[in-house]
Amino acid sequence: MDETRQRLTNCFQVVFPELPQEAIATASTATVAAWDSVAAITLMNVIEDEFGFEMDLDDLADLDSFEKLYSYLQKRHQVA
C-alpha cells in the first residue's frame, strides 16, 4: 500500500472507527451508513489535518468514495 493510501486509510479509521479495516478501500457513501453530510465534512477536515492543505467545500459532493478521495489526493500531490 502506498503512503497516500495508508494515510487516507488512517483518516477513515479516525472518522469511522466502527468500519472494518478491510472495508475501507471500497467505502463510499452508498456502503457506509455513517457517511452522512456531517461525517463528510469531518472526514474532509481530518484529511486536511493529515495532509496539511485545505480542501474546498465545493468538491465535497463529488468525493463520495475512498477511491475518489484517493484520486483527488494523488492529483493534489502531483500539483504540489
Binding site: 483518516c11 479516525v14 469531518t42 477536515n45 489535518d49 493529515e50
Partner: peptide, 12 residues
C-alpha cells in the same frame, strides 16, 4: 486541538 486529535480523544 485539531479535529483528528478531538476525535481520537473521544474514541479513546
Amino acid at each position: 486541538m485539531t479535529i483528528t486529535e478531538a476525535l481520537r480523544i473521544t474514541q479513546s
